[in-house]
Amino acid sequence: MTSFLSVRDLVVHFPTIDGVVKATEGLSYDLERGKTLGIVGESGSGKSVSSAAILGLHRGTNAKVSGEILLEDVDLLTLSDEEMRLRRGRDVAMIFQDPLSAMHPYYTIGNQIAEAYRVHNDVSRKAAKARAVEMLDRVGIPQPDRRVNDYPHQFSGGMRQRAMIAMGLINDPGLLIADEPTTALDVTVQAQILDLLQDLQREFNSAIIIITHDLGVVAEMADDVLVMYAGRAVEFGPCKEILTHPEMPYTWGLLSSVPDVKGDTDARLIPIKGNPPSLLNLPPGCAFEPRCTHSDKVPGNLCRTEVPDLLPGNRGGVHTKRCHLANSDTIYQREILPEIAPELVEDPS
């Protein structure tokens, strides 16, 4: 048996009048039960599109999806629409960024949670509602038997996200995909929600994919990190490894462009120059090359002509990077780290 979830060469293309939008290209990763994968990237990096493909949410649209998505050795892409539908919510569940717009405004919270339960369980309305109350209680909604009859607009942002989590976990799915689950929330509420997700993960032993642009969230939640850029995985590895020894200049950029609550305030932020490329018209070489400040260190014109493969980096092991730079770890420790976190430089020589 391979991993619990194994994504192989996932491709998601959207044909449009202007050409094919290559939203995801050749994405592969594995995830075990009880573990969390953090997918980091900016808007348009393909992090949400590739995860929606796991739920089969592109079915019925004009998207072209290919590759393999093996969930417990079953390729989800080969299932019929009806078979896939029956797995949605039962084997894989998803929670979304903005819980206000992700819930139907005209139905009560209880109705919507119970509905998720009744799709996959042949129970009475009453039993389903009782289960909904139980789940609301589990995710920390006070007075769940009363609040179950409230409408989404009567909940606060944090409570709505709790309710979404209750809805997602009511069928005890093996895989939970959380798409920017805390982006719309305040920090103290974000902390509550992340704690809750971790508690529930321990309890249900589910695998979690957390999609975010916030490296801080990844740092707190993820076991493994996948960095995506322009539809491709550009770096993958264990969370701590990625945060301490990033080898891809894009990841460096993400780390250096965000201030933190402790760093040196006299230092300027070091942004990534320019804008992300259009997915309609990707450069022939490395997609990050136009914004990269290190491509001059690669001999020849390699960065501009050839897409690098996702290969093990300088430190070997499971840490892979999609970059032509030969000694990227050394460059990071010598050039980048002293700029962004001088206190973390291990060996000043």
């Binding site: 006070p142 606060s156 944090g158 409570m159 920090v187 103290t188 509420v189 974000q190 902390a191 509550q192 992340l194 704690d195 916030d214 490296l215 801080g216 969230v217 740092a219 707190e220 969370c239 701590k240 945060l243 301490t244 780390l255 965000v258 933190d260 609550v261 402790k262 760093g263 976190a341 973390l344």
Partner: peptide, 26 residues
């Protein structure tokens, strides 16, 4: 509480999670 709730990349990079002050409710 507000400051303790901010996820900290560097802290996590060094290892270990800081204790958060949990604020209950809304």
């Amino acid at each position: 509480a507000l400051l303790s709730a901010v996820p900290d990349v560097k802290q996590a990079a060094i290892g270990g999670r800081r204790e958060r002050i949990r604020l209950e409710g809304d």
